[in-house]
Amino acid sequence: MGLRDTWPAGVAVQAELREVPFFPQQDYQCGPAALATTLVHTGAQVTPEELVKWVYLPARQGSLQTEMLAASRRYSRVSYQLAPRFADLLREVAAGNPVIVLQDTGVGPIANWHYAVVIGFDYPAGELYLRSGETKRLAIPFTVFEYTWKKSHYWAMVTLPPGRLPLTATEPGYLAAISAMERVGEARAAISAYSAFLERWPDNVVASVGLANRYYALGALKEAEFVLRRAAARHPDSVVVLNNLAQTLSDLGRNDEALALIERAVQPDESPFAAAARDTHALILRRMGRSK
């Protein structure tokens, strides 16, 4: 792709994240070592030994890409797979985010898969810097790196704390990454992640619903109401927003307001959420009957 000829626009020509920690890998365990490198860099309390139980497959003597992404979520980090582009890799590193890459250091038919962490680059010298295996600072020419990286289809990921978006994140990609983290991460982490997401993409209705649902699950009904009202102002016809807002208000004891909202939600009958809205409608009516 000729990095030597065309350097991506707007990227510094030199960067090195010297403060990124280094964990020399034990036998075959570059996966846990690479993951510990980026997780500890973001302040997570974890060791490569501990990560073995999440990402190491004994019979394969290695770690799968999916598990590298999945294990980060246990530490409430949003794992994000980068677009397969050299420019995106460089942009993340320049933005201060060490990047885990999957390389095949074998030749021809002999595959030798290996995870390493890109921590810097130097365009004039034509080199990338990696925390790799037992080498704390491996300098590798762009061409050699690309040759080894190409075979994993330029696979690269970052693990970032929930309030910090990857520089190259896309709206659908990062939303999926947060919702994946929600599976096993802490509720508070999901709240920071959705909040940061909404600062960048305030119009996203799914993220608003996600944030409000997290608040609701924690019993923070006022916060849930605030988020849903903001979403309802932007999307006045969203059945999901109206339904969840009505439910929240009803739980706060404000059934009159809730009823007015849910009556708007049950109008469009073709919505896939019409049944849920009708249930909420019935619930609110029951609660009003009880309170009279």
Binding site: S63, I110, W113
Partner: peptide, 19 residues
């Protein structure tokens, strides 16, 4: 596809030499 999926493993000392 677990058997076929790449599993990152080795530090790649020897392979790097070959490379």
């Amino acid at each position: 596809k677990i058997h076929a999926a790449p599993a990152g493993a080795d530090g790649g000392g020897l392979a790097l030499l070959v490379l």
